[in-house]
Design a protein around this nucleic acid. Structure first.
Lengths: 340, 340
DNA sequence: GTTGGCACTCTTTCCTTTCAAGTGCCAAAA
DNA sequence: TTTTGGCACTTGAAAGGAAAGAGTGCCAAC
């Protein structure tokens, strides 16, 4: 734990991690002195490396194979060592334009966030919406002919949800409309996650439609708990050299296709702004890392997004992208609401 | 072309294909006589195999490596040789219940078709909706508070729900509702692909809302051309032994993630009921096969669905599943419309 | 036309050798 | 006390080669 670690060790550790992230091959003492730390000899570095290995920061597979960072080293790297890279202006522009283009047609901004992150980082990205504290902007039933109606809820973040409700035989469109209006009176302006508090009130107001009242309310409350997982670039991570063998690829893909599992992984660390899980901590599978960020607008948390990839991930890049995306996202949403 | 092929050759070819599909290894003369054709000697079979190879039905990689079917052989197999397997009653039950469960909550039946096919065949499945002759069940604008409304179209097969329309400053909800009603009068019951025919009529009826009329109509027509590609079990095909090498996996996955390309592949063979593309014909990548089926209800084509996998695919199983899914689908849709 | 027999070809597997990379350690230098 | 050059040692990866196994092609006999 409290083992001291000298400045020079930190410097060396940083070089090792940087180098390993870039080359994906174990780093040797020679490589360090040749490329980065020319003022000392390789023998010196070697003894430092041996010490770092003793302290659990480095791992050596074979006696002649250089060393790679341990999860512990990655953690230190992320917390202290790495140099965040600014995104290029082309990249920030790309983020902005992606969101704006979507905002017009938007089914949900979640999709586009996932796409943008995956595009910029070259890793698989994951977005989770639904733990958000949105308020209900409109709610209504939309009749669809064959004894069904579509229940629609639009929130102030223009994320909306829908599901079908079976209507009682012979219910007329006018009645459905009336019911919609009642729902609007009750729920518009309420926070999504507090919709349940209006249950009693709604039951009474909708007494005339007892038959379907329950169904509608349950559907509304179901939205409350619903989390939507969106994934982008599922195979992008596979382009990285650690996935050089069929078994690893299959493991990774089966994780990627398991929405429920992904949802769990993402929703765990929602309290911190940027969280990183490495190796097999926090349920992340061996050899995988997940970097998550949770975004909020005006203090309301609107979603969690993340990047899923190998442990040897370009954390500096990923963190920069996640932060930029968060900033732009916040601006875009604020503008579109402010322009009301 | 017209090269004759004896009954015994056909029998042998069938055995080769069956065996290869099952084992994924080249088939030898010995294996044939031991397992299936015990009445002749391996030498006899050998000469037949040599003849079949001359005619282009079989391929031999090394002189001591057995033989595998050529695309030409697969085609003959599919057309004449294969024995369709009936689905088990558990399987048909699975199809039926999947559709019914979905029909109640249905976002879109396309999703569930893709899931079912992938589940039953263990291959990646693809579903394409949109060249369909759906009819509009309801249409309307759903106000969302901040000078915007959601344009919603529900057809008998899916929901279009991702066009926001900017409303003119100061437009009241009542006006939006009125406009919705007008749209309903014009479009409900119309076929999606013929919505454009009502353009003139709509322009006149909506003259009062000139400002946004154009925008709404354009959004409607934009939906018209939209084809939705749904994919299920993207990595399922990878469980098969031909994908034993990283390059092949990447090729396959990059195809799978290219929605546009998939859409093209699927929409090509829409005229036939069941179509098969093998190897690299019709734009299918080398080493891939795609089996497609187009389904219709009451003569209206409602979609194209398919299976994407290695050339060595269990065609008998796949074709059986596609046919059964088609049958059940037709029944389910007819019932749900008939029960209106 | 069919069969058994046998030589031939080609892949797969396993072993051995060699080569290069990188470390660990030590004694000398700073 | 820290740093350094030198050198022996370990280990994996690459290259070569022998042996084994699978399957065919062909031929002469039935």
């Amino acid at each position: 734990m409290g083992a001291e670690i000298s400045e020079r060790k930190k410097k060396i550790l940083q070089i090792v991690v940087d180098e390993y992230i870039e080359t994906a091959t174990p780093v040797s003492s020679k490589a360090i002195t040749q490329k980065h730390l020319t003022e000392v000899s390789s023998a010196t570095v070697r003894s430092e490396l041996a010490a770092l290995e003793d302290q659990g920061y480095l791992i050596q597979f074979h006696t002649s194979g250089g060393r790679i960072p341990s999860p512990k080293a990655y953690r230190l790297y992320i917390d202290e060592l790495m140099e965040r890279s600014e995104l290029s202006s082309a990249e920030t522009e790309f983020i902005r334009s992606s969101f704006e283009r979507r905002a017009a047609s938007a089914e949900s901004i979640v999709r586009s966030v996932a796409d943008v992150i995956s595009e910029l980082t070259d890793y698989t990205s994951v977005a989770l919406s639904g733990q958000s504290e949105e308020t209900i902007g409109n709610i209504g039933l939309f009749p669809c002919g064959d004894s069904r109606a579509l229940l629609l809820i639009v929130t102030d973040l223009r994320i909306f949800k829908d599901s079908f409700i079976a209507l009682p035989e012979g219910m007329r469109d006018e009645e459905v409309e009336k019911m919609s209006r009642t729902l609007q009176n009750i729920f518009v302006g309420k926070r999504m996650d507090r919709a349940r508090e209006a249950e009693e009130e709604a039951m009474q107001a909708l007494a005339a439609y007892r038959q379907i009242c329950r169904e509608v309310l349950d559907a509304i409350f179901a939205y409350t708990d619903r989390r939507e997982v969106v994934l982008s670039g599922g195979s992008k991570s596979l382009l990285h050299p650690e996935y050089d063998d069929v078994g690893k690829i299959r493991t990774f893909l089966s994780l990627v296709e398991d929405e429920e599992e992904i949802g769990k992984l993402l929703s765990d660390g929602t309290s911190v702004k940027i969280g990183v899980k490495i190796g097999s901590d926090g349920g992340v599978p061996e050899d995988c890392s997940i970097v998550t960020a949770s975004y909020s607008v005006d203090g309301r948390q609107i979603g969690t997004y993340g990047v899923l990839g190998p442990v040897r991930m370009d954390y500096a890049k990923v963190v920069s992208v996640l932060e930029s995306v968060g900033d732009v996202l916040e601006k875009v949403i604020k503008n579109s609401n402010g322009g009301k």
